[in-house]
Design a protein around this nucleic acid. Sequence first.
DNA 1: AGCCCAATGCAAACCGTTTGCAATGAGCAG
DNA 2: CTGCTCATTGCAAACGGTTTGCATTGGGCT
Lengths: 152, 152
Amino acid sequence: MKSRKRHHHHASRADLPALTDRLRRKSRKITGARQAILEILRRHPHPMSNKEIFAALPKGDCDLATVYRSLHLLENMGMVKRFDLGDGVARFELLGEGDDGHHHHLVCTRCAAVVEIEECFTREFEEQIAARNGFKAITHKLEFFGICPRCQ
Amino acid sequence: MKSRKRHHHHASRADLPALTDRLRRKSRKITGARQAILEILRRHPHPMSNKEIFAALPKGDCDLATVYRSLHLLENMGMVKRFDLGDGVARFELLGEGDDGHHHHLVCTRCAAVVEIEECFTREFEEQIAARNGFKAITHKLEFFGICPRCQ
DNA sequence: AGCCCAATGCAAACCGTTTGCAATGAGCAG
DNA sequence: CTGCTCATTGCAAACGGTTTGCATTGGGCT
């Protein structure tokens, strides 16, 4: 069901033209703002908030509202995945084509450093839980928190 | 380390005097608002938002801001546990004394029905992950989502 | 009974996010 | 290449959950 990509799941490797092409194929306009946002996500191995993306943008390249709208678009297109790291802030990672992006994070509660966790232990338990409670289409969100080596 | 209470971990059984006594022991004032809030949580087996608690309050019993402040207090005292069920809304459950309240939920993405999941599969993986990344004091948040029998 | 400070009500502030509206510009036809 | 059109954008206002400043109230002590 899931074609697990080799370890580095983030689509950092895909170049910008390949990314904009995915926009084109769904007949979305290739605007400066979208290219800039994709380029930033491409270079960032970690989940980024709207504000962070906005701040990383070539100064004044677009409005914060546009960042929000662009990420909604990219999320709906399956080009980015939204993560919730426990504070009330949405964060996003770029996804490779066909990658469902399912993985987890280990977040330092002091400095907010993030480590990606590749394995997902929970798959098999989903089925148990689904069966036992009669639920369908089960997914889960799992994030780890702790204190990183540098902050100890 | 964790004295796992028998299955029904929520402190629904403790009566109100027992709860207010925990306030007294930490020399917090036993006010009408706090009693009312505790009574509501006591009767509710599921995580409740501030608004829900406020709405369940004997009409006009206290201000919404007081509900927020009370839940902060109760959380800091370890009397309630905060859950994040994926929408941006904090929800709370009453905790028994000495109970760390660690468990998870299965949430219907259509009707928001919540089932409590007793088991925690993830404990052992925490140590692996901690060791492998040099993190200390690891915890995790895990919630399941799906479509409940009635909504299918 | 009276005092004092914790707790409360109220309204305003906050923060992340969304939205209405008019102006802009990407991609298409001609 | 030029012009047209609708998706996209900027801007500012609205929104929902949560927090906070400040004057008032009222628990729990003496």
